[in-house]
Design a protein around this nucleic acid. Sequence first.
DNA 1: CGCTGCGGTTACAATCTGGTTACAACGCCG
DNA 2: CGGCGTTGTAACCAGATTGTAACCGCAGCG
Lengths: 226, 226
Amino acid sequence: MPRILIVDDEPDLCEILQFNLDLAGYQTEIAASAEEALTLLQPDHDLILLDIMLGGMSGWDLARTLRKERNLNIPILFLTAKTTEADLLKSFSVGGDDFITKPFSLPEVLARIRACLRRTAAPQAPMPSTSQLITLDGLQLDPDRGVAMINGARLNLSPKEWGILALLLSRPGCVFSREDILHQVWHGESCVLDRTVDVHIARLRRKLGPMGARLINRQGHGYCLE
Amino acid sequence: MPRILIVDDEPDLCEILQFNLDLAGYQTEIAASAEEALTLLQPDHDLILLDIMLGGMSGWDLARTLRKERNLNIPILFLTAKTTEADLLKSFSVGGDDFITKPFSLPEVLARIRACLRRTAAPQAPMPSTSQLITLDGLQLDPDRGVAMINGARLNLSPKEWGILALLLSRPGCVFSREDILHQVWHGESCVLDRTVDVHIARLRRKLGPMGARLINRQGHGYCLE
DNA sequence: CGCTGCGGTTACAATCTGGTTACAACGCCG
DNA sequence: CGGCGTTGTAACCAGATTGTAACCGCAGCG
């Protein structure tokens, strides 16, 4: 039973959604604000229905935060009264998966939810988001909190750096081609030169300090951590 | 480099789409009918932009056919002038991933395409940890780690050497002609003298040490490992 | 003997690859 | 709006890799 988090500050609307989603066989929770959503969100949630205009943090901010800082990959469907093209583009640019304008038809919402879940349900474990703490010698990653530490000292990594490190650390010793890395970390978002990976690797090496020497290139194959 | 098939019977619209998709870095093809789409569609297409009203087979029929009979899983985005809720629901029910009504804004189409591809590109190469090393006596190849070992000692092989060794090791005792080797390792890339293979064999022999003696030439036939 | 075909080996230049830096573009945040 | 961090690209450099030609030895053979 897929689990859906509804984030909206209109209680009536939330109830209608919840009623119909429950009817359709989903398990639902309601958050009245982005802040509440952050505390309610569980690792096993499968999808978020998100309003944009909320008191405090906006839906866009929440989406960006989830994607970037929590490295969360579940679908986010924006449900909003904002209807301009700029609103739509912004919603997709912060990592949204769909954009439905109010007033909406419930069957449409259900259809779009189903379409999204069909895409994401198939591959069970796309990222190492399952495990708690990935560790290699003095280096440790906490995927849930998006924190990387080296001998207890916290590293300040950019999202891409974090993604690359998490990927390499998920299978130490294994070689990942630049293509692999682009696929996994950039999530296939269009066209980036593969040499870009090199640059990020270099930046990672520097931040890793002595451990950077263990981020190795296998000529003609790719990069690995060992 | 993602590859997109545009299926629409209005040439003008197709051209506008193609022009803009090309600009955005996608590779595009155009089919003017569902039937043409069926012949044009390649296994490495990543997404389909599909009109509903077409001469002959409708977009819905095409989508259903692709999903059911070809077992195709790539995203299908419907682009259509039909705007009723019934049309939308039908589009999702035949396996569509999104539904955009004409007239549409190009940025919106691009954003929705990007969102779809982001979902499907990730598990593209979900490296199943099938680290099966190829072994022959003290010699072992681990394709996963891009490492060749000989009695536990790491060999430092160049890509071509690696390719040749992997090929010979795939069928120990079998003879591979220089042509075979060029074909398999060089992937038919242009014109390289077959004597070049000899040079690489020599370098391999040296790196293999004592085991190099087992890299044998069969006069007039080729090389083999035994 | 010399000639010939074949393969091993070496040397060297051309090319490729990866490390690194600098810089421009973008988005975010105050 | 302006500063800041992040990101993608281009450019340069050093070193590894690669292709070619040349030279060598060997076996077969008239």
